[in-house]
Amino acid sequence: MIEVKGLKKHFELRNGFFGGKTRTLKAVDGVSLSIGKGETFSLVGESGCGKTTAARTIARIYEPTEGAVIYGGADISRLGRKELLPYRKRMQMIFQDPYASLDPRMTVGEIVGEALDIHALRRGKDREDRIRELVSLVGLKSDHVGRYPHEFSGGQRQRVGIARALAVEPEFVICDEPISALDVSIQAQIINMLEELQEKFRLTYLFVSHDLSMVRHISRDVGVMYLGNLVEVAGVDELFSGMRHPYTKALLSAAPIADPRRAREASRIALSGDVPSPLDPPSGCPFRTRCAMAKGICAESKPELKAVAEGHLAACHFAG
Protein backbone atom coordinates (compact mmCIF):
# COMPACT_ATOMS: atom_id res chain seq x y z
CA MET A 1 0.00 0.00 0.00
CA ILE A 2 2.86 2.32 0.75
CA GLU A 3 6.22 2.12 -0.87
CA VAL A 4 9.27 4.16 0.01
CA LYS A 5 12.06 4.33 -2.54
CA GLY A 6 15.54 5.59 -1.81
CA LEU A 7 14.31 8.14 0.70
CA LYS A 8 16.94 10.63 1.85
CA LYS A 9 16.69 13.42 4.35
CA HIS A 10 19.72 15.64 4.75
CA PHE A 11 19.77 18.60 7.12
CA GLU A 12 21.90 21.62 6.32
CA LEU A 13 23.58 22.81 9.48
CA ARG A 14 24.75 26.36 9.49
CA ASN A 15 27.49 27.34 11.82
CA GLY A 16 28.44 30.85 12.79
CA PHE A 17 26.68 34.10 12.14
CA PHE A 18 25.04 35.03 8.86
CA GLY A 19 25.15 31.61 7.27
CA GLY A 20 28.81 30.82 6.94
CA LYS A 21 29.88 27.27 6.19
CA THR A 22 27.16 24.68 5.95
CA ARG A 23 27.57 21.05 6.79
CA THR A 24 25.28 18.26 5.77
CA LEU A 25 23.79 15.91 8.31
CA LYS A 26 22.68 12.78 6.53
CA ALA A 27 19.94 11.73 8.94
CA VAL A 28 18.32 9.38 6.47
CA ASP A 29 20.50 8.23 3.63
CA GLY A 30 18.56 6.00 1.30
CA VAL A 31 15.73 4.05 2.88
CA SER A 32 13.50 1.77 0.81
CA LEU A 33 10.68 -0.30 2.18
CA SER A 34 7.14 -1.32 1.41
CA ILE A 35 4.20 -2.06 3.66
CA GLY A 36 1.09 -3.98 2.70
CA LYS A 37 -2.42 -3.09 3.83
CA GLY A 38 -3.23 -4.10 7.39
CA GLU A 39 0.37 -4.97 8.14
CA THR A 40 2.81 -3.61 10.69
CA PHE A 41 6.30 -2.70 9.65
CA SER A 42 8.70 -1.75 12.43
CA LEU A 43 11.78 0.40 12.16
CA VAL A 44 14.27 -0.35 14.90
CA GLY A 45 17.65 1.04 15.77
CA GLU A 46 19.40 3.09 18.37
CA SER A 47 18.88 6.78 18.98
CA GLY A 48 20.30 8.87 16.18
CA CYS A 49 19.99 6.10 13.62
CA GLY A 50 17.40 8.11 11.70
CA LYS A 51 14.32 5.98 12.31
CA THR A 52 12.22 8.87 13.63
CA THR A 53 13.44 11.18 10.86
CA ALA A 54 12.60 8.51 8.30
CA ALA A 55 9.09 8.15 9.73
CA ARG A 56 8.56 11.90 9.78
CA THR A 57 9.83 12.30 6.26
CA ILE A 58 7.42 9.61 5.08
CA ALA A 59 4.65 11.53 6.86
CA ARG A 60 5.85 14.70 5.09
CA ILE A 61 6.53 16.51 8.35
CA TYR A 62 9.99 16.90 6.91
CA GLU A 63 10.54 17.58 3.23
CA PRO A 64 12.46 14.70 1.67
CA THR A 65 15.80 15.56 0.12
CA GLU A 66 15.60 12.72 -2.37
CA GLY A 67 13.52 9.66 -3.08
CA ALA A 68 9.87 8.88 -3.46
CA VAL A 69 6.99 7.91 -1.22
CA ILE A 70 4.41 6.08 -3.30
CA TYR A 71 1.03 6.03 -1.63
CA GLY A 72 -2.02 4.62 -3.38
CA GLY A 73 -0.16 4.77 -6.68
CA ALA A 74 0.91 8.41 -6.42
CA ASP A 75 4.22 9.88 -5.38
CA ILE A 76 3.35 12.14 -2.45
CA SER A 77 6.88 13.25 -1.69
CA ARG A 78 6.65 16.38 -3.88
CA LEU A 79 3.05 17.46 -3.41
CA GLY A 80 2.20 20.94 -2.17
CA ARG A 81 0.13 21.54 0.95
CA LYS A 82 -3.21 21.64 -0.86
CA GLU A 83 -2.63 18.50 -2.94
CA LEU A 84 -1.24 16.74 0.10
CA LEU A 85 -4.28 17.41 2.28
CA PRO A 86 -6.29 14.33 1.16
CA TYR A 87 -3.23 12.18 1.86
CA ARG A 88 -2.83 13.75 5.29
CA LYS A 89 -6.29 12.48 6.03
CA ARG A 90 -5.34 8.94 5.05
CA MET A 91 -2.01 9.02 6.90
CA GLN A 92 -1.73 9.98 10.57
CA MET A 93 0.95 10.03 13.23
CA ILE A 94 1.09 9.04 16.88
CA PHE A 95 3.95 10.60 18.78
CA GLN A 96 6.36 9.43 21.42
CA ASP A 97 5.66 11.97 24.11
CA PRO A 98 1.91 12.05 24.62
CA TYR A 99 2.17 15.19 26.71
CA ALA A 100 4.34 17.29 24.44
CA SER A 101 2.33 16.36 21.39
CA LEU A 102 -0.95 17.69 22.75
CA ASP A 103 -1.53 21.45 22.81
CA PRO A 104 -1.79 22.19 26.55
CA ARG A 105 -4.36 24.90 26.02
CA MET A 106 -6.88 22.82 24.15
CA THR A 107 -9.39 20.41 25.59
CA VAL A 108 -9.58 16.85 24.36
CA GLY A 109 -12.69 17.75 22.42
CA GLU A 110 -10.91 20.63 20.69
CA ILE A 111 -7.84 18.53 19.92
CA VAL A 112 -9.88 15.76 18.34
CA GLY A 113 -12.31 18.20 16.75
CA GLU A 114 -9.61 20.25 15.05
CA ALA A 115 -8.60 17.25 12.96
CA LEU A 116 -12.23 16.91 11.84
CA ASP A 117 -12.45 20.62 11.00
CA ILE A 118 -9.27 20.72 8.93
CA HIS A 119 -10.61 18.05 6.66
CA ALA A 120 -14.16 19.43 6.93
CA LEU A 121 -15.47 16.02 7.91
CA ARG A 122 -18.31 16.66 10.34
CA ARG A 123 -20.35 19.61 11.51
CA GLY A 124 -22.55 20.53 14.43
CA LYS A 125 -24.08 17.73 16.42
CA ASP A 126 -22.67 15.10 14.12
CA ARG A 127 -19.23 16.42 14.97
CA GLU A 128 -19.87 16.27 18.71
CA ASP A 129 -21.16 12.71 18.39
CA ARG A 130 -18.09 11.70 16.42
CA ILE A 131 -15.78 13.18 19.09
CA ARG A 132 -17.61 11.23 21.78
CA GLU A 133 -17.46 8.08 19.70
CA LEU A 134 -13.70 8.47 19.21
CA VAL A 135 -13.08 9.16 22.87
CA SER A 136 -14.93 6.03 23.91
CA LEU A 137 -13.20 4.08 21.13
CA VAL A 138 -9.87 4.63 22.85
CA GLY A 139 -11.26 3.71 26.25
CA LEU A 140 -11.82 7.16 27.73
CA LYS A 141 -15.06 8.38 29.27
CA SER A 142 -17.23 10.83 27.37
CA ASP A 143 -16.95 13.42 30.16
CA HIS A 144 -13.21 13.50 29.43
CA VAL A 145 -13.99 15.53 26.31
CA GLY A 146 -13.95 18.85 28.19
CA ARG A 147 -10.70 18.18 30.04
CA TYR A 148 -7.20 19.43 29.31
CA PRO A 149 -4.21 17.17 28.61
CA HIS A 150 -2.55 17.89 31.97
CA GLU A 151 -5.50 16.35 33.78
CA PHE A 152 -4.67 12.93 32.36
CA SER A 153 -2.08 10.30 33.15
CA GLY A 154 0.53 9.40 30.52
CA GLY A 155 -1.41 6.40 29.26
CA GLN A 156 -4.63 8.38 28.97
CA ARG A 157 -2.83 11.16 27.10
CA GLN A 158 -1.53 8.64 24.62
CA ARG A 159 -5.14 7.48 24.19
CA VAL A 160 -6.08 11.08 23.39
CA GLY A 161 -3.26 11.18 20.84
CA ILE A 162 -4.59 7.99 19.26
CA ALA A 163 -8.16 9.33 19.20
CA ARG A 164 -6.84 12.46 17.48
CA ALA A 165 -5.03 10.38 14.88
CA LEU A 166 -8.03 8.14 14.24
CA ALA A 167 -10.47 11.07 14.00
CA VAL A 168 -10.01 11.39 10.25
CA GLU A 169 -10.35 7.65 9.63
CA PRO A 170 -6.82 7.11 8.33
CA GLU A 171 -5.64 3.93 6.64
CA PHE A 172 -2.01 4.30 7.55
CA VAL A 173 -0.77 5.25 11.02
CA ILE A 174 2.82 6.05 11.83
CA CYS A 175 3.52 5.25 15.48
CA ASP A 176 6.72 6.98 16.56
CA GLU A 177 7.83 5.31 19.79
CA PRO A 178 4.24 5.39 21.05
CA ILE A 179 4.95 3.57 24.30
CA SER A 180 8.49 4.39 25.30
CA ALA A 181 7.43 7.23 27.62
CA LEU A 182 4.94 5.03 29.47
CA ASP A 183 5.03 2.67 32.45
CA VAL A 184 5.39 -1.03 31.75
CA SER A 185 1.84 -1.90 32.77
CA ILE A 186 0.43 0.98 30.71
CA GLN A 187 2.55 0.04 27.67
CA ALA A 188 0.66 -3.22 27.44
CA GLN A 189 -2.69 -1.40 27.52
CA ILE A 190 -1.67 0.83 24.62
CA ILE A 191 -0.15 -2.00 22.57
CA ASN A 192 -3.26 -4.11 23.01
CA MET A 193 -5.40 -1.18 21.96
CA LEU A 194 -3.29 -0.52 18.86
CA GLU A 195 -3.67 -4.19 17.92
CA GLU A 196 -7.43 -4.14 18.45
CA LEU A 197 -7.79 -0.96 16.40
CA GLN A 198 -5.69 -2.46 13.65
CA GLU A 199 -7.97 -5.47 13.46
CA LYS A 200 -11.12 -3.37 13.62
CA PHE A 201 -10.21 -0.84 10.94
CA ARG A 202 -7.61 -2.82 8.98
CA LEU A 203 -5.02 -0.18 9.80
CA THR A 204 -1.53 -0.28 8.43
CA TYR A 205 1.19 0.62 10.92
CA LEU A 206 4.68 1.92 10.59
CA PHE A 207 5.97 1.35 14.08
CA VAL A 208 9.14 3.10 15.20
CA SER A 209 10.68 1.71 18.36
CA HIS A 210 13.84 0.74 20.12
CA ASP A 211 12.01 -1.79 22.28
CA LEU A 212 12.91 -5.02 20.52
CA SER A 213 10.59 -7.24 22.53
CA MET A 214 7.58 -5.07 21.69
CA VAL A 215 8.66 -4.90 18.06
CA ARG A 216 8.82 -8.66 18.00
CA HIS A 217 5.38 -8.81 19.53
CA ILE A 218 3.60 -6.40 17.21
CA SER A 219 5.32 -6.50 13.81
CA ARG A 220 5.01 -8.50 10.66
CA ASP A 221 8.18 -7.09 9.13
CA VAL A 222 11.13 -5.35 10.70
CA GLY A 223 13.73 -3.00 9.28
CA VAL A 224 16.93 -2.37 11.22
CA MET A 225 18.49 1.05 10.79
CA TYR A 226 22.03 2.15 11.44
CA LEU A 227 23.38 5.63 10.76
CA GLY A 228 20.61 6.60 8.37
CA ASN A 229 20.69 3.36 6.43
CA LEU A 230 18.51 0.29 6.47
CA VAL A 231 20.94 -2.54 7.11
CA GLU A 232 18.52 -5.45 7.29
CA VAL A 233 14.86 -6.07 6.49
CA ALA A 234 12.98 -9.30 7.08
CA GLY A 235 9.85 -10.88 8.45
CA VAL A 236 9.84 -10.70 12.23
CA ASP A 237 10.49 -14.39 12.91
CA GLU A 238 13.06 -14.65 10.17
CA LEU A 239 14.88 -11.62 11.54
CA PHE A 240 14.91 -12.68 15.17
CA SER A 241 16.01 -16.23 14.42
CA GLY A 242 18.18 -15.84 11.36
CA MET A 243 19.60 -12.35 11.30
CA ARG A 244 22.43 -11.89 8.82
CA HIS A 245 23.82 -8.43 9.43
CA PRO A 246 26.48 -8.18 12.15
CA TYR A 247 24.83 -5.03 13.53
CA THR A 248 21.48 -6.77 13.88
CA LYS A 249 23.22 -9.61 15.69
CA ALA A 250 24.87 -7.23 18.12
CA LEU A 251 21.67 -5.24 18.65
CA LEU A 252 19.48 -8.26 19.30
CA SER A 253 22.01 -9.88 21.61
CA ALA A 254 22.27 -6.69 23.65
CA ALA A 255 18.56 -6.64 24.47
CA PRO A 256 18.06 -8.03 27.96
CA ILE A 257 15.79 -11.06 28.18
CA ALA A 258 13.09 -10.97 30.83
CA ASP A 259 13.66 -14.59 31.73
CA PRO A 260 16.40 -15.31 34.27
CA ARG A 261 17.29 -18.82 33.04
CA ARG A 262 17.57 -17.80 29.43
CA ALA A 263 19.38 -14.60 30.41
CA ARG A 264 22.06 -16.69 32.14
CA GLU A 265 22.59 -18.78 29.03
CA ALA A 266 22.54 -15.91 26.56
CA SER A 267 25.77 -14.72 25.08
CA ARG A 268 26.25 -11.19 23.97
CA ILE A 269 28.14 -9.78 21.04
CA ALA A 270 29.81 -6.70 22.45
CA LEU A 271 30.09 -3.63 20.26
CA SER A 272 33.09 -1.46 20.82
CA GLY A 273 33.16 2.28 20.36
CA ASP A 274 30.40 4.71 19.60
CA VAL A 275 28.17 5.35 16.65
CA PRO A 276 30.08 7.60 14.20
CA SER A 277 28.72 11.10 13.63
CA PRO A 278 26.19 11.32 10.80
CA LEU A 279 27.95 14.57 9.87
CA ASP A 280 30.99 12.57 8.91
CA PRO A 281 29.94 8.99 8.19
CA PRO A 282 32.58 6.37 7.36
CA SER A 283 33.28 5.54 3.74
CA GLY A 284 31.80 2.34 2.40
CA CYS A 285 29.74 0.41 4.91
CA PRO A 286 28.46 2.66 7.70
CA PHE A 287 28.94 -0.09 10.27
CA ARG A 288 32.50 -1.07 9.38
CA THR A 289 34.15 1.00 12.16
CA ARG A 290 32.50 -1.15 14.81
CA CYS A 291 32.23 -4.42 12.93
CA ALA A 292 34.31 -7.44 13.91
CA MET A 293 34.03 -8.85 10.38
CA ALA A 294 35.15 -5.71 8.54
CA LYS A 295 37.61 -6.25 5.68
CA GLY A 296 39.18 -3.98 3.09
CA ILE A 297 36.18 -4.08 0.79
CA CYS A 298 33.94 -2.64 3.51
CA ALA A 299 35.81 0.68 3.42
CA GLU A 300 35.79 0.80 -0.36
CA SER A 301 32.23 0.11 -1.35
CA LYS A 302 28.93 0.53 0.38
CA PRO A 303 27.06 -2.78 0.48
CA GLU A 304 23.67 -2.70 -1.24
CA LEU A 305 20.56 -3.91 0.54
CA LYS A 306 20.04 -7.18 -1.33
CA ALA A 307 18.08 -10.38 -0.92
CA VAL A 308 19.86 -13.03 1.10
CA ALA A 309 16.82 -15.28 1.38
CA GLU A 310 13.14 -15.19 0.47
CA GLY A 311 11.81 -11.87 1.80
CA HIS A 312 15.03 -11.19 3.65
CA LEU A 313 17.31 -8.29 2.72
CA ALA A 314 20.64 -7.39 4.24
CA ALA A 315 23.27 -4.78 3.44
CA CYS A 316 26.51 -6.57 4.16
CA HIS A 317 29.24 -7.86 1.89
CA PHE A 318 29.39 -11.06 3.92
CA ALA A 319 25.72 -11.66 4.53
CA GLY A 320 25.15 -14.04 1.58
Binding site: S185, A188, H217
Partner: peptide
Protein backbone atom coordinates in the same frame (compact mmCIF):
# COMPACT_ATOMS: atom_id res chain seq x y z
CA UNK B 1 4.00 -6.91 35.52
CA UNK B 2 5.06 -10.18 33.94
CA UNK B 3 1.90 -10.29 31.83
CA UNK B 4 2.45 -6.77 30.53
CA UNK B 5 5.58 -7.60 28.58
CA UNK B 6 5.78 -9.77 25.50
CA UNK B 7 6.87 -13.30 26.19
CA UNK B 8 10.66 -13.34 26.16
CA UNK B 9 12.49 -15.25 23.49
CA UNK B 10 10.89 -17.31 20.74
CA UNK B 11 7.55 -18.97 21.04
CA UNK B 12 4.06 -18.11 19.98
CA UNK B 13 2.76 -14.61 20.36
CA UNK B 14 0.45 -14.32 23.32
CA UNK B 15 -1.82 -11.41 23.93
CA UNK B 16 -0.46 -8.97 26.46
CA UNK B 17 -2.32 -8.88 29.77
CA UNK B 18 -2.12 -5.30 30.97
CA UNK B 19 -2.93 -4.15 34.47
CA UNK B 20 -6.10 -2.07 34.24
CA UNK B 21 -6.28 1.42 35.71
CA UNK B 22 -3.39 3.47 37.00
Amino acid sequence: LLGSIPEPGEGRRRKLVPIPGS
